[in-house]
């Protein structure tokens, strides 16, 4: 197995790990089934995807990742195909498109990009589900009880995980330097 294949396998495993952690985190300690209006949605997979899109330069690979992981996410967690399948690749292409604006990736930039991507994906899911009458939550309730807490929680997690995650994704993407 050459270095490139190994690194890509590593990227896929990291994304899958984040995928399972999303469900397990929601299940194990964000599990407010009995009381409370506040809904927090862990979005670790989106976090990993944003980190990878900041570093991977081939757009085809990004779209492929977005569609495949979005499809798994939709099918396994939502039972509705078409939410993350579309929104995740769109968010990743958006990050890829505007990343030339940043001369050097640092924590401040990446945290704000993740913030925008998260807002885009969560609002997209809300609007699509609202259009298809899967939910009956009004926009104000969505912003106060879902989007706000979700953004806050994920920002804190991003802040904590930034250094290991950034180093790991740096290492997973830069394979050309190793092969030479």
């Amino acid at each position: 197995m050459n270095v490139k294949t190994r690194k890509i396998t590593g990227q896929v495993i990291l994304a899958l790990l984040a995928f399972y952690l999303d469900g397990l985190m929601k299940w194990s300690f964000l599990n407010n089934m009995n009381t409370g209006d506040i809904i927090i949605v862990p979005q670790l997979m989106l976090m990993v995807m944003v980190m990878l899109s900041m570093r991977i330069s081939t757009r085809r690979q990004l779209i492929l990742y977005g569609v495949i992981f979005g499809l798994i996410y939709d099918s396994y967690y939502f039972g509705l195909i078409g939410l993350y399948t579309i929104l995740l690749p769109l968010a990743m292409v958006g990050v890829d498109h505007y990343k030339f604006l940043f001369v050097k990736a640092n924590m401040g930039y990446e945290i704000s990009i993740y913030f925008l991507a998260l807002t885009f994906v969560q609002s997209g899911v809300y609007i699509l589900e609202r259009l298809l009458q899967q939910i009956n939550v009004n926009a104000m309730d969505f912003i106060t009880f879902t989007l706000g807490p979700t953004l806050l929680w994920n920002m804190i997690v991003f802040f904590i995980l930034y250094i290991p995650l950034a180093n790991l994704s740096d290492w997973l993407v830069k394979y050309r330097r190793d092969s030479k």
Partner: peptide, 15 residues
Amino acid sequence: SVLSRSPSSWQNYLT
């Protein structure tokens, strides 16, 4: 046994 819960705002699903 429960495998996970959907990380979604409105789909309160357990797998």
